[in-house]
Design a protein around this nucleic acid. Sequence first.
DNA 1: CGGCTGGTTGATTTTAGTCAAGTGCAGTGG
DNA 2: CCACTGCACTTGACTAAAATCAACCAGCCG
Lengths: 230, 230
Amino acid sequence: MIDPDSIGTISRIPRFSGVSQQALTWLAEQLSRRSYAKGAMLFLEGEDSSHLWLVESGAVKVFRSLESGRELILGIFRFGDAIGEVAVIDGTGYPASASAHEDATVWVMPRQAYFTYLERFEGTAIALIRDLTLRMRVMQRRMEDLGGGGVEYRIARVLQALCAKSPDQPGPVYLPIPLTRQDLADMVGARIETVIRIMSRWQKDGLIGQDDRGLCVRDRRAMAQLAGGS
Amino acid sequence: MIDPDSIGTISRIPRFSGVSQQALTWLAEQLSRRSYAKGAMLFLEGEDSSHLWLVESGAVKVFRSLESGRELILGIFRFGDAIGEVAVIDGTGYPASASAHEDATVWVMPRQAYFTYLERFEGTAIALIRDLTLRMRVMQRRMEDLGGGGVEYRIARVLQALCAKSPDQPGPVYLPIPLTRQDLADMVGARIETVIRIMSRWQKDGLIGQDDRGLCVRDRRAMAQLAGGS
DNA sequence: CGGCTGGTTGATTTTAGTCAAGTGCAGTGG
DNA sequence: CCACTGCACTTGACTAAAATCAACCAGCCG
């Protein structure tokens, strides 16, 4: 039943990096691994929040279909990120849907096992609180982006945020996630044509670039300018 | 030093309603009460997050001045709401500023006392987790509002949310908080003139009304229509 | 009486959405 | 191999929405 390598893999998930060997062994029995092909749904909004999801590889998109007809991407999650935590904790259904943005493998943890985990092992509740507060900061930032100004400003902020993890190196910074124009549009609450027009201009001006390695920001200073002072 | 009535007042704050008499007594020693006149600042973004704030009466506006020049209201908090929790927990400075939206009295709790409180008394960490998840849901909703569509849709959503607590009664529903047009504009990320034009039209169409008791929604069905299906 | 705040209106410009058409490419099945 | 499909991307013309700029009004308060 238990993949003999499970413990090793699980211990590499940041969320569980600090826990005891005993907790890891217990976790390995509770978690199961699943793989999803690009585009496959992990869960739908409103569905009963039966599981906590932890991304091991690939990328998972969490989004919400709005009454206005649009789709708003709430976040794209990668290695180590937890999904569905809020829903699992408060027991109401998932507040959004999730699908595999690229081929992805995830660990799933049943709701009850998660509660047991929080109760039984020391320090896990604190880790959860820290994680939640961190995510609230991220959400606040995104609220600011969405409410902040024009579409140009909002796209610049998103690209800025995606590049933020990379060290301040010279040369182009490639985005860690493949994003289509439609994805960007869904992230900033705009139409695809608007996004294309803005990005075409940026490309012409040498601000960004695109090749087989993906999308990149060529002029971080100018991008920061757009995201900051307009 | 301790207001003899403190314990009684504190026990009425929902956040502390379930705690033991012992914890209440301890809290009464840690908390101090402050009053702020309308417009006065409680704290500034970036300031060291030294205290947790609990609103007892009045209203406190939490907002952020964006690089784009706008001011985005992140929330307006009333009786029982906690402010600054995220900042206190993760120890980085306040991520936003707060001022008294109306004359307000608040309880302040030093950072260290808050940690002691979480450690010493049973169940408080769980209560915190529940509160955080609840607030993440609220934030997600606001993100959807901001990214969702036009200004009309966004204003409708805000009014809708403010009326949501009131029971589904016939007749006008007055907003629980006095809001100027500018406040609304800062909540939805729009200009004051745009807000005025939309609301003037609504007023003409009998959707909303305004009198000495404040702003009210007269036709909740139509408002829900705007917030839902456009 | 000023000065201040909040609300309001109109004219104009800018921005973004909408509609329609079309390109380039990768994969698929005949 | 080639037609065919689907997908991401692109462009142009046009319309609608919102921002901007500039006044102006009413009430309130010292």
